[in-house]
Design a protein around this nucleic acid. Structure first.
Lengths: 346, 346
DNA sequence: AGCGCTTACGGAAGCGCTTACGTCAGGTAG
DNA sequence: CTACCTGACGTAAGCGCTTCCGTAAGCGCT
């Protein structure tokens, strides 16, 4: 790959300004011990020449890094891109760079990304996105992060309880309970849950909430069909096909994220099933397009952009002794995709 | 910010393995001149110790960087996040890291991001997203990129003709012509264009296509209202309000990107205007949710993810003598949001 | 046995910065 | 007028790595 050769060096600037390397360095990085006059001259010349300091050299020598690493599951999933938006915007305001990595929900690759970030000597690593239910699967990543912390790095996560670090925790369980209650209160008793991949803790949490709500009605989660599919639009679409073909009498479909709900909606439309007339549909996340779907989607709002800002804020704030955890809160957003259960045999 | 102090160094590994620094380095970076036996031992110990090379030191000494910088306008805009998805996925396959920056459509900030990327000594810089119609505005960025190229860096862009670099160029003008023709062929004569900010070349290009299509029908673009607003959902929503209130007899609204089209749709729905019954709506980009809107959106498809892969591929491929340009192609996707113009006074 | 050649390794010189420390003015106090 | 401090600057020692050398074996050959 490209090797950046023969770029302008600080010595060049220093020579041109007729000062020593040290003075030039101090002038450009705003340290004192340089007269205003000289500092101005150096800065002027640097600008003129288009000098950009070599960050690798600077980091090597100085030690402090001003870049934060952000690992997300899927960068083109709205859930994550909205989180990333929050992180990036806040970081920009503070003059920090963010290095975004993409794990593709593959714990192995995630480990690799963490390693890269560490190699890049970022000051902060933020991991956004569900952990894995199988603890073994992410043990390596966890260990790597711990090592990073010991070495003085800051870590913060969104949605992982397992890592010992500051965490922003989405209200998954509460939210799950809230949508489920909503559906139940509309009289739905034949509910099918479209869940994402079983190995994600987020799914487990949301399901737990759903189970709690069912319990409160004297129903058991074991009696409701739970389809584990891909956490994407297509996963939802396929699940809906399966439901229409195999689960008779369904009155409501609860998708555990909006992407899948969108897929469900799409299948129902193409199969001519009216929503919410025949089947109600609810999602989770309140992705920004949820309001613009046909019909608009009932869902649980999680403040993604704000979550992004919060993790970064936590990560940046000097570490208190024990990891802080902040839950996001949630809000049930009732829109047009849910309605009263159609009366049996009517 | 966090300073990563006292991390494991290569010497530590070398000492532990009983070899010299040089040998350890060769072993870990796969250079030859080391016996298999020793190399294995070193690698084993490195793994055991959890050694991760300091990329800054490595880059400083070696010169080659394996990270690519990607600058987008808005990371949480689906158009860009889909492009980013393409870049990131392909990069991942090749073992490259991607550093994503976000300019917020601010040329000044974009310049700052370019500088940061250069400071980070990335090997490749990719700039995605419209250029600015005012050449002065991005002269600085252009100069900076040129300097980067001279120093051996690779640059590739999406949607900027002005930069001297390999470019993937969306079929903006052709696409604009295609949607406009579609609308005209449905009998629409009272078309309002919802354009994004005037300072973006993308807008200018798409508008030029629209103008061409109008010309072919003996109509002039000067006779059709063009509203310049924010390139976002809200920009579209506001524009639609204005249209309903101030432009009588509109039969079709052509939004120059999907985000704005979504906003238009939302306003029309809340104002009780039927689409396409009373007003047809078309967008541009074919963002992934376009198919799931209410009604599904007629638009021009641009293969975003593929564009992302293409720029990266171009950037990575050894530079031919002159910059290559590859146009993306486009496809008119007719869905439910457009229909025949309602007959006047009917 | 002596020659050169290859192979495996160690020594040491940087890469471009920051920063501890030394120096040398000039100013103040005694 | 000397002693001392302060401020402005230069000198040089690294930061952790890669890589160019040099060197010492080990090999086959004459």
């Amino acid at each position: 790959m490209g090797r950046t050769r023969s770029a302008l060096r600080l010595v060049d600037v220093a020579d041109r300004a007729g000062v020593s390397l040290a003075t030039a360095s101090r002038a450009l990085s705003g340290r004192d011990g340089v007269s205003e006059e000289v500092a101005d001259r150096v800065r002027e010349i640097a600008r003129e020449l288009g000098y950009v300091a070599n960050l690798h050299a600077r980091t090597l020598a100085g030690g402090a890094t001003s870049t934060v690493g952000l690992i997300v599951h899927e960068i083109d999933d709205p859930y994550f891109s909205e989180i990333a938006g929050g992180v990036v915007r806040l970081a920009g305001e503070q003059g920090l760079m963010v290095q975004i990595c993409h794990s593709g929900r593959d714990p192995e690759f995630e480990l690799h990304e963490i390693r890269s970030l560490i190699a890049h000597r970022v000051g902060v690593i933020i991991v956004a996105g569900s952990g894995y239910t199988d603890p073994k699967v992410q043990a390596a990543a966890k260990a790597e992060l711990a090592r990073f912390q010991e070495a003085g790095g800051r870590v913060a996560v969104i949605g992982r309880h397992s890592v010992t670090a500051d965490a922003v925790l989405p209200d998954n369980e509460e939210g799950g309970a809230a949508v489920a209650e909503h559906l139940l209160s509309l009289g739905h008793r034949k509910i099918v849950v479209v869940a994402g991949p079983q190995r994600l803790t987020t799914i487990a949490d949301r399901l737990a909430g759903v189970a709690r709500a069912l319990d409160a009605q004297g129903m058991s989660i074991d009696a409701v069909p739970v389809l584990h599919t891909d956490f994407t639009r297509n996963g939802g679409a396929e699940a809906a096909e399966k439901i229409l073909d195999q689960v008779a009498g369904t009155t409501a479909i609860l998708a555990l994220n909006d992407a899948m709900a969108i897929g469900v909606l799409s299948t129902l439309r193409s199969r001519g099933v009216s929503v919410p007339g025949q089947i109600s549909v609810a999602g989770f996340d309140d992705v920004s397009v949820a309001a613009d779907l046909a019909p608009s989607l009932t869902t649980v709002r999680l403040p993604m952009a704000q979550m992004g800002e919060q993790v970064l804020t936590m990560a940046l704030r000097p570490s208190s002794t024990r990891p802080r955890r902040k839950s996001t809160g949630h809000e049930l957003i009732v829109r047009d995709s849910t309605g009263p259960a159609r009366t049996r045999r009517g």
